[in-house]
Design a protein around this nucleic acid. Structure first.
Length: 456
RNA sequence: GUGGUUGUAGCUCAGCUGGUUAGAGCGCUAGAUUGUGGUUCUAGAGGUCGCCGGUUCGAAACCGGUCUUCCACCCCA
């Protein structure tokens, strides 16, 4: 009996064209990472559970793929725990390893483990798959690639400035124009929570605020009330619900709101510096926008928070995100090391480029030239030519069988081969070859000696 | 994790309130065309109707479960 083939939900196979397009994106990103001075590292696809658990909040723990222990793992489980059937409690007895959930936490672990070999500030990049036990949707998978660049060991806000330039450089290079880099600062969010007297409800407050563009001002107020934030407090933040104008104007409004919060004012100062510096340097195709409702990754971000939105005409969640985390390595025992980094969502960028039709056409081409097979002797002559071309860097191949011409031509067509070369009985005796342009159908006979020159 | 949605040929989809042998277009294979592809014509191959169970004389269709797809929450790249 043969079994029905299938792959787990949220995972994909990639065809040759898709791999070509993904490689194109990855190479573009890597090129810019290196251009900005980042160095690559890689970490294992799975980590000890304790390295990952508790780093992404309760929700995160649920989405981490756990790996079942090897061997007779149930034997070691306490009878009481086993009989209670509490999955969460049982997990730590039967699973000690888990698949990587993102690249930031493993990086923090790496920094702590290798602190004595690292020269700070350390700029690293990492392009590897991560796994989340999420329910798939458009642009959301259970296995996907993240492309991260982070700097640890520098408190300078110039790092934030560099990351904004990096986003701009990569997206411009990918012809993905019109992206919006949204920026906020954890200190501003804390400051707002402080001045409205809801400091203890920071997370609830920001999570609700983050939904402004989705559920509107009324929805946000409703959710805040439900989370126990008072009406007076909500009235104080009301100006944020109609927050517009230039970045400068927004900063001024914030300054008024946060005049009594030392932390909030610090956040404004940071944002102000970054905005001013970027304004002086200029961006190619991206727009930098101050967005006080942006509140992602609060479990570890302490300063700047970034998120990149695709051009408005594409309906897609964020295609990148990042921020500053002052104490990520703290949980692994290394204090006072500040980090800041950004991430590119490869799979989503792919979908956006596809939708906008901005992948280079050349990615569709598989080989430069196909030789038609006319029989044993002709094939040998063709193979000699193939060898010469390959040595010159031309992607060439000979059709393996002496099949009908139509079949061989069809094959060339389907593979988008731009040229074919025919060496049949006539050409064999003349030591010539026929070059045919598959696009316009033109063909011409050349002496064999001109083979390499033709492809220059 | 919650609620909903989807599944019929390789692909896109028809298939009536349950009723003979489940169809179309595209694609594929072969021929027309033994050294010339994309066009045209002709013929052909290809289906556990997602899977399991139930209702029924009879199920692709109705019901339950399950898997998958997509969507809204949650969260997030």
């Amino acid at each position: 009996m043969s079994q029905r083939p299938g792959i787990p939900k949220g995972t994909r196979d990639f065809a040759p064209v898709e791999v070509a397009k993904r490689t194109y994106i990855i190479n573009t990103i890597k090129k810019h990472f290196e251009n900005f001075g980042f160095q690559p590292i890689e970490t294992p696809s799975f980590e000890n559970s304790e390295t990952l658990m508790g780093k992404y909040g309760e929700e995160g723990d649920r989405l981490i793929f756990k790996i079942l222990n090897s061997g007779d793992y149930l034997r070691k489980v306490d009878d009481k725990i086993y009989e209670d059937r509490q999955s969460a409690a049982l997990t730590k007895y039967i699973s000690e390893k888990a698949l990587r959930y993102d690249l930031t936490v493993p990086f923090a672990r790496y920094v702590v483990m290798h602190q004595n070999e690292i020269d700070f500030p350390f700029k690293r990049y990492q392009v590897q798959p991560v796994w989340r036990a999420d329910r798939p949707q458009k642009g959301r998978f259970r296995e996907f690639y993240q492309c991260d660049a982070d700097v640890v060991g520098s408190n300078s806000l110039l790092q934030e400035v560099e990351f904004i330039q990096l986003y701009d450089a990569v997206f411009s290079s990918l012809k993905l124009e019109g992206t919006t880099i949204k920026m906020n600062n954890r200190k501003i969010l804390s400051g707002i929570a402080e001045v409205i007297g809801a400091k203890d409800k920071l997370i609830d407050f920001t999570v609700a605020l983050d939904k402004l563009d989705k559920i509107g001002a009324e929805g946000v107020q409703k959710e805040m009330l439900a989370k126990g934030i008072t009406e007076e407090a909500i009235a104080k933040v009301a100006p944020l619900f109609n927050f517009n104008g230039t970045n400068e104007e927004r900063l001024q409004q914030l300054e008024t709101l946060l005049k009594d919060s030392e932390e909030g004012l610090k956040g404004i100062e940071e944002l102000s510096f970054i905005l001013k510096t970027i304004a002086a340097l200029g961006l190619k195709t991206a727009t930098l926008e101050l967005d006080v409702t942006l509140a992602r990754g609060l479990n570890y971000y302490t300063g700047a928070i970034f998120e990149v939105a695709a051009p408005a005409q594409v309906k897609m969640g964020s295609i990148g995100g990042g921020g500053r985390y002052d104490d990520l390595t703290g949980v692994f025992g290394l204090k006072n090391i500040s980090g800041v980094g950004i991430s590119f969502g490869l799979d989503r960028i792919y979908l956006v480029l596809e939708e906008l039709g901005v992948f280079p056409e050349s990615l569709e081409k598989t080989i430069d030239v196909l030789f038609i097979n006319f029989g044993e002797e002709e094939a040998l002559q063709s193979l000699k030519a193939v060898k010469t071309l390959r040595e010159g860097g031309v992607k060439a191949e000979l059709y393996p069988d002496n099949a009908k011409m139509k079949k061989q031509m069809n094959y060339a067509n389907r593979r988008n081969v731009p040229y074919i070369i025919m060496i049949g009985g006539q050409e064999l005796s003349d030591t010539t070859f026929v070059l045919k342009n598959m696009e316009n159908g033109e063909q011409k006979t050349y002496p064999m000696t001109e083979l390499s020159a033709v492809f220059k």
